[in-house]
Design a binder for these strands. Structure first.
Length: 115
DNA sequence: ATTTTGACGACGT
DNA sequence: GACGTCGCCAAAA
């Protein structure tokens, strides 16, 4: 919004969008970053999600993967493959650390929230 | 206070 | 099309 709200809002936006990810769907860091208007801030999206564990509210960070559909962030979850189990729990099939039919279950905030 | 890295992605070569 | 570099901003060392 205003130029002063440089970053705090950015993080909140990430949390908000991530919570809006439907059950059994996934999205990418870049998609969220692009939705926020900062295509190149994809790294910050991941960093923001890292802060989600300190947030009072639960954020389905396991539904966010990189552009390749790889569960790159699973290493940040407790256990070895908590992220994968959570996704499989939602019906998402994981094939070799990668989301199967990634394009099919991909949820683009730019499109979904634009309706 | 400065430097380095980091859940990525786009662009250049 | 594979590989390298830059950019984004924040947090940890």
């Amino acid at each position: 919004m205003n130029q002063n709200s440089s970053s705090p809002n950015f993080f909140e936006q990430v949390y908000e969008v991530t919570r809006l990810i439907p059950y059994g769907r996934v999205t990418s860091y870049g998609a969220i970053a692009r939705y926020l208007g900062s295509t190149q801030s994809s790294r910050m999206v991941g960093w923001a999600l890292n802060s989600t564990k300190t947030l009072p509210s639960w954020v389905p960070a396991h539904r966010v993967v990189n552009r390749q559909g790889l569960l790159t962030g699973k290493i940040h979850f407790p256990g070895s493959n908590t992220m994968q189990e959570l996704l499989e729990s939602e019906g998402v099939v994981i094939e070799d650390n990668r989301v199967k039919d990634f394009e099919k279950i991909f949820w683009d905030p730019q499109v979904a929230l634009s309706l």
